[in-house]
Design a protein around this nucleic acid. Structure first.
Lengths: 355, 355
DNA sequence: CCACGGACTGACAACGTTGTCAACGAACAC
DNA sequence: GTGTTCGTTGACAACGTTGTCAGTCCGTGG
């Protein structure tokens, strides 16, 4: 019986010895640096392969100033959104050889800025991807910039804020306009609007879209139809109840996201109101359950995963020296527009209701 | 105007200099080692605080064999489940001073084992938390053990597998029994069962619970009522359709998870079947949307976050030297039982249907 | 008064990698 | 033949931390 042999994981030193070259040459091969003869390079690569050598990330990031990991910062109860952001960022990270550190946090914490700075230092992160609402707090943004911490923001805006800080932006206003327009074109005149969380910039943006569409179609804004709340099922439910109690009930309700819309749907069912024939409901986000509710929700599809991916690439571009391929391709802030997805929860207004 | 000063992040060296002690003493203070005079310790701590010094994780894990980060490995389309696992593990990690590396992966990939080994080596992970179905693949478990990679499994089992590898286990069978029993006690005799994914051990476990309850209550198992499928909304929808088409339709359907149950619910509505009065539906998992569907779903609540947290602590206990507090408290595999949550989707069987 | 042990402290090397700089040989121009 | 340049390679130090081991200091017992 052979003695148990503890196979140590090979280091660059083992590779160098076996390949009969210096440490530095192996390093050069790993990092794809020029000035290595093709012969030598191939030989070293073969040895690396044979030994199953993998560069040690700790050592790498300790020695070289630049590191190989990003952080993604979020404070969002919506699991689908968070997973989509993670997966998008992760896809870019894997492609570009970066690691990923997730950092759920409390947006309301007064120490958040210090917390993020410490996170970056301790873990030697190359930069941060900020999801809303952190991305929208300018004092945080300025703090990070002041501390020379690279970052990119995912934010809600109709156009590039052009404030000198990198971002990708999502035109919630435009998409909300389209949703409202869709409802109007179905003949709805009394359209309720349920706000999302006030700390997210997307909320006022979506409201602006709603407002603009009403204006463009000559419908007066009725403040009784507009209800404050949070991006939650429960607020959707409660808000819908309040709208149902109005003397003149709306024939359509636009919930600021799918969770709110799901709450409206539940409230409608609880009140015996038929959707869509007595009430049209629209959401926003295209979460999986917008497809899975009954009836399936009309909504605006924002490809969060792709948006997050682009955000990460935008950040990586900032980290790269000018002239790099990524740096060249992703040097500019990019905008996205969610697309209207018409499903079964919206329908032509029933004439009977009008009277 | 003062010249811009680049504030370098302070190192242990700066602390030592300013505190007029050696590097090693600072190191001792940071690591809470004994043999530092109380005076010295306090003084050093004050300096650390004043400078805002933070130990560098890369350097730490490079120098000391042990590292300070765990990995969590999953392959699961269910965002709620994944987030709950992440948050649970993260809570333990933060508490114990560990970092966390997430690793979504493809359970079907033949290179998965190597991928995980490389991940651990490259990132110097102290160990892995394996979520199902990875946790259930014995060849993977043996591979990790053979490579001396610490891990803990979250798995579905009625009792401690006692195979020598650490885990936390969830008694799906028992919970499924309770759900089925609940349906039987409501008077249901024809209870449909929709399987979850065959690659998850929880599926057969849940089926066994269903089977056992039927047997205990003297109800013959009707194979036509049992339908294979995956843990998905669509399979729930399709499976329900097939059950509805039977000459003798079931009066209750047990979907192996909430997504399946949501699919059943949608199918029932599409077919104009009233839930719960013509059809009772039960799910499993207590995802948020089980509360938010209409009617809200009867289900089994598994506190995934707490389970994942315990799993992480169980792993950390393995890493600690014997005698450590954590090591002592979490040295044993622990079991969890999901709890029956009765909501509005299940009701007493209508006599009219029996005929 | 000296030896001794224990509590505390520090000098130094090491972890695995990359940046800096010098050295080597070949090719080329003069 | 000499000087210069270029492409390739290697020796060495350094990143920030901890493990090892050898002190130093003080109090105690002989």
């Amino acid at each position: 019986m052979p003695a148990a042999v503890d196979v140590k994981t090979p280091t660059i030193r083992d590779v160098a010895q076996r390949a009969k070259v210096s440490l530095k040459t192996v390093s050069r091969v790993i990092n794809n640096e020029p000035s290595v003869r093709a012969n030598t390079r191939e030989h070293v690569l073969r040895v690396i392969d044979a030994l199953g050598y993998l560069p040690d990330l700790s050592a790498r990031s300790l020695r070289s100033a630049s590191s190989y990991a990003l952080g993604v910062v979020y404070d969002n109860p919506n699991a689908y959104y968070v997973i989509a952001v993670q997966n998008g960022v992760l896809s870019a990270c894997r492609e570009q050889g970066f690691g990923l550190q997730i950092h759920p946090c409390n947006a309301a914490s007064p120490q958040l800025a210090d917390e993020l700075r410490d996170l970056v230092r301790r873990s030697r992160l190359a930069g941060l991807v900020l999801a809303p609402p952190m991305s929208e707090r300018m004092e945080l943004v300025r703090f990070l910039a002041g501390n020379k911490i690279p970052f990119v923001r995912i934010l809600s805006a109709a156009e590039d804020p052009a404030d000198g800080y990198p971002c990708v932006f999502v035109d919630d206003r435009d998409a909300a306009y389209e949703i409202t327009e869709h409802l109007i074109q179905l003949g709805h005149q009394r359209i309720g609007f349920l706000w999302g969380g006030a700390e997210h910039r997307s909320s006022p943006e979506r409201f602006k879209g709603y407002e603009a569409a009403l204006r463009d179609y000559g419908i007066a804004l009725d403040k009784k139809l507009v209800i404050a709340g949070d991006y939650s099922f429960d607020d959707g439910f409660r808000g819908a109840r309040r709208l149902f109690a109005l003397r003149e009930r709306p024939t359509a309700i636009f919930g600021s996201n799918d969770e709110i819309a799901a709450g409206v749907l539940a409230a409608a069912k609880a009140s015996g109101i038929d959707v869509p024939y007595e009430l049209s409901i629209a959401g926003f986000e295209d979460s999986p359950f917008s497809k899975q509710s009954w009836p399936a929700l009309t909504t605006a599809k924002q490809n969060t995963e792709e948006i997050a991916r682009r955000a990460a690439l935008r950040l990586i571009a900032e980290l790269r020296p000018a002239g790099d391929v990524i740096a060249a391709n992703y040097a500019r802030n990019q905008g996205f527009s969610p697309q209207l997805v018409i499903r079964d929860s919206t329908a032509r207004v029933r004439l009977a209701v009008e009277g």
